[in-house]
C-alpha cells in the first residue's frame, strides 16, 4: 500500500516553508506599506507640488494632475492649440497642449498631463489624460445622453496624437 496522504516528515518540512513564506510576505508588505514608498513613488504632482519643487520642475518630464479650472479652456477646436488651467486646492498652473483632447475633457474634470514646465511660466503638455472619478450617475430626467454626444464619444477613441 502507498503511504497515507502525507508523512509526518513531509508535513514538518512543509510547515517550516509556510513559516518562512509568511515571514517573507509580511516583511515585504510592511516595507511597502510603511517604508515610505508611498511618499517616494509619485505618479503625478499637484500644482502645489509643482510650485514647491521650484527649479526641479523645469526641463524634466513630469506629470501634473488636478482639475481643469472653470472658464479657463481656450482653443477647444484645435485651431490654435488647447490652453487651460489645472488647479488644486491651493495652486494653479497654466497648461498649453497640442492635439485634440479626449472627448471626456471638460471644465471641472480631473486631468493628468505629461510634459514639462517652461521658463515662460506655462506647462507644455505632450500627453493629456482625463481621469474620471468614482461617481457613476444616471442622466437626470430631461437630459438624456443624446445621439450627437454619443457619436462624439465614439470619435474620441482616436484621442490624442502621440
Amino acid at each position: 500500500m502507498t503511504e497515507p496522504t502525507a508523512s509526518d516528515a513531509m508535513r514538518r518540512k512543509t510547515r517550516r516553508f509556510m513559516i518562512a513564506a509568511f515571514a517573507a510576505a509580511i516583511a515585504a508588505f510592511l516595507v511597502i506599506a510603511y517604508g515610505g514608498i508611498s511618499k517616494n513613488l509619485v505618479y503625478y504632482w499637484t500644482p502645489t507640488d509643482l510650485h514647491a519643487a521650484g527649479n526641479k520642475a523645469y526641463g524634466a518630464t513630469i506629470r501634473l494632475g488636478g482639475m481643469v479650472a472653470p472658464h479657463s479652456v481656450k482653443g477647444r477646436n484645435g485651431v490654435s492649440g488647447l490652453e487651460f488651467d489645472v488647479k488644486d486646492a491651493t495652486g494653479i498652473v497654466h497648461v498649453k497642449s497640442s492635439g485634440v483632447p479626449p472627448q471626456m475633457f471638460r471644465e471641472n474634470i480631473g486631468v493628468v498631463v505629461e510634459g514639462t514646465m517652461t521658463r515662460s511660466g506655462y506647462f507644455q503638455c505632450n500627453r493629456l489624460m482625463v481621469s474620471h472619478n468614482n461617481e457613476y450617475r444616471a442622466p437626470k430626467a430631461g437630459h438624456a445622453v443624446n445621439k450627437e454626444e454619443l457619436q462624439k464619444l465614439m470619435k474620441s477613441t482616436e484621442g490624442l496624437k502621440d
Partner: peptide
Amino acid sequence: APPEALMGQVQ
C-alpha cells in the same frame, strides 16, 4: 440601465 451621465455608453 441608463447610460452614465458623463461617460455615456462606454460606462
